[in-house]
Design a protein around this nucleic acid. Structure first.
Ligand code: FES
Ligand code: FES
Lengths: 146, 146
DNA sequence: CCCATTAAAGACATGGGCGTCTTTAATCAT
DNA sequence: ATGATTAAAGACGCCCATGTCTTTAATGGG
């Protein structure tokens, strides 16, 4: 598995909340988990981290829920991956040796470097806002695809 | 983690055995695990699968051990990944939805596709023989880098 | 003020990747 | 033949990602 399940849940959750911005309403955990067909309690943990990192905001109580803030749409995939897959995700060697170190490369370093770099670039350059703009139409379907 | 630790162990094990072909000698599990600084018993399980798949050969008993066969140098990385990371590795969606399906893509499909494809191509087109030829000199060091 | 609602926090369970050890079976040197 | 050596096979334990449930705290409606 290239990226963790948690990453998928986090991204889809953030996207769902962002899509609801137009109606300017807050979205409850129950709604997100229900719509995305994602384990409710597990999603709760992840969303807590997302809020703690400032990528989304949330309030408790009646009419409470998750909502976007000034960071949300500018958040890069890299930021989300850091939350879900750990700070070291972008540094570890493909052979699981300590760190990917170009000056003392493993036997596969040169082979994997281009694709790997491409993937990392995309993560760094893609924001939530861009993803939403690109897919608008039927993409709620794909988000909630269980 | 993009690829499993098992993959790293398997590849390095296969490379080590292949490098010893020149002396036309068999290599014991103890020697491989010792040289590569890899958990011996765990490596045993992986090597068993490698042999079962025909990528290497092995005999038991005195003077026994692992040795290369006609498949070894032509084995692609894809073959090894299938053994260690599962048949589905190349099909699963980056968001952990069932399968990566270009005709019903997830919101990130188009973003990740190029890098992902590049990575998969490399795996498909790179063989053990090529890896050995490319890195000959000091690369045992990097293999055994603990 | 009180209560329903909602996220936050924390305790607990499960499964698979990873790691260790023991037993079995094959092979060869003697 | 016998015994040492070596891989194969199987049992077991650990840790962490994943998943579930309960308790706490905040918020707003009545
Ligand atoms: S050192 Fe192994 S991928 Fe860079
Ligand atoms: S459908 Fe998600 S990566 Fe292809």
């Amino acid at each position: 598995m290239i990226l963790s399940k948690s990453f998928g849940y986090a991204l889809r959750g953030i996207l769902y909340v962002s899509l609801m911005q137009e109606e300017k309403r807050k979205v409850s955990l129950d709604e997100i988990a229900g719509q995305l067909k994602v384990p409710r309690y597990f999603l709760a943990k992840i969303m807590k981290e997302v809020v703690k990192a400032g990528v989304l905001s949330a309030t408790r109580g009646q009419q409470g829920g998750f909502f976007i803030n000034s960071n949300t749409l500018n958040t890069s995939l890299t930021t989300i991956i850091r939350l879900t897959d750990g700070e070291e995700y972008f540094n570890i060697c493909m052979l699981s040796l300590q760190k990917c170190n170009p000056s003392n490369p493993c036997p596969l370093h040169s082979k994997f470097e281009p694709g790997r770099q491409e993937l990392f670039e995309v993560c760094h350059n893609t924001t939530i806002g861009m993803v939403i703009k690109n897919n608008k139409p039927e993409f709620i379907k794909s988000i909630s695809f269980h």
